[in-house]
Simulated scan of single mutants.
Amino acid sequence: MGKRANGEGSVRQRKGKDGRPTGRWEGRISFLDPITDRRRSVSVYGDSARECRAALKKVVQRIEEGQPARDAAVTVADWLKTWRTTALEASDRRATTKALYAGLSRTHLETGDLGAKRLDRLKPSDVEALVVRLRKAELSESTVRQVYTVLRGALEIAVRDGLLASNPVAKVRRPKVTRTEARHLSAVEVQSLLSHARGSRYYAAVVLMAFTGLRRGEVAGLAWTDLDLDKAEMTVRHTLSRVGGELVLSEPKTTRSRRRVPLAAPLVAELRDHKLRQDTERKAAANTWTETGMVFTTAAGTMVDPRNMLRVVEVAAKAAGIEDVGAHTLRHSAAVGLLEGGAHIKAVADILGHSSIAITGDIYGHTSDDAARSALDNLGAMLGTPTP
């Protein structure tokens, strides 16, 4: 038995079946597990008594700091599968976020070398190798960051549950996402797109997106009780999205996303016409109509998949000869139009539902040459001619 210091546990040389020393040393310590409240023991091994005492000292330090004596030996994939069905499912995240995180975990984290790695052997360099691999696969910067976020969050739960002493992902810098100038249309292009969308079942929804900058899920999630056409305003209370093959109506992600938005007179007129058309449809459908109370519905009264509204925008843009129109193009166009029309950035942030004006400034901080020149001309007029 080797000499031991107080609190270091016991250290002894290991022996083979023949009773002779094998050249390896074993250190062993007994302690009360703070998680299970039961007494357990941990062994460490080394080529010398000194090496074992050093390893035992680290174990004692971890125990005294309330950390697990040693990290769990389960694989990363096994832990992520457990996390998906427990902590993630029990969280208060939106259903769409849960579905996104679970999909990213299955696709990018639970497969390959990383998924097969033991949790107790995962190093920051393994996480960095993951980031490199994702970038080489030409995933977008935002997707790479989301995968990082999923792994970091899952391993934080592993630390909480006593499976890890520390989170190796937290030691790796969060992958950056380069801000790019938002693609937007000029007022003339928006007018052309709306002209080519006229006649579509969801024309009023496209007009609403163009006039207010609402997201398509917010437009699809509008109920008639959210609109006050007499006061020319509406309140954004829900967003509609498809999760696991079903349409799910949920509250917006942030408090700022739940907002009141004023409505321009032409938009109010269009919505009144739309309501009359819907009332006519409801009467014609009779008992086959499903009453949902939604502003935009299918011919049977049921909720509309937000993707259908996007298709109308894409088809109208193609007919108008406008390229590179995506899910948020009308939203971006409304924001730029408001800013260049002289609206204060705080008002624009409120209309769009941004959590801060910093986000609005980062995305829409640019102006056209004409707007910049007009602003400087106005400032020059206010300052007058410099006195010699």
Rank of each mutant, 00 (worst) to 15 (best):
I322P: 00
E323Q: 09
E323T: 14
D324H: 14
D324S: 13
V325H: 02
G326A: 15
G326C: 07
G326N: 07
G326Y: 03
A327I: 15
H328K: 13
T329V: 14
T329H: 09
T329N: 11
L330I: 13
R331C: 04
R331D: 12
R331A: 02
H332L: 13
H332Q: 08
H332C: 13
H332R: 06
H332P: 07
S333A: 12
S333T: 14
A334W: 15
A334E: 09
A335C: 13
A335G: 02
A335R: 04
V336W: 05
V336T: 15
V336C: 14
V336L: 10
G337R: 08
L338W: 09
L339I: 11
E340N: 04
E340P: 04
E340G: 07
G342D: 12
G342W: 02
G342V: 00
A343L: 07
H344N: 14
I345M: 14
K346Q: 14
K346L: 06
A347Q: 12
A347C: 05
V348R: 03
V348D: 03
V348C: 12
A349T: 08
D350Q: 08
D350N: 08
D350R: 08
D350G: 01
I351Y: 01
I351D: 00
I351C: 03
L352E: 03
G353S: 02
H354E: 02
H354K: 04
S355R: 03
S355Y: 05
S355C: 05
S356T: 12
S356Q: 01
I357M: 15
A358V: 15
I359D: 05
I359Q: 04
T360K: 03
G361W: 04
D362E: 08
D362P: 09
I363W: 01
I363K: 09
I363E: 10
Y364F: 10
G365A: 14
G365D: 07
G365L: 06
H366D: 09
H366G: 00
T367K: 01
T367M: 05
S368C: 09
S368R: 13
S368W: 03
D370V: 14
D370R: 14
A372E: 15
A372H: 05
R373N: 12
S374C: 01
A375K: 03
A375E: 10
A375N: 03
A375C: 00
L376R: 01
L376I: 11
D377M: 08
N378M: 13
L379M: 08
L379E: 11
L379G: 02
G380E: 02
A381T: 12
A381G: 01
M382P: 00
L383I: 07
L383S: 00
L383T: 07
L383P: 04
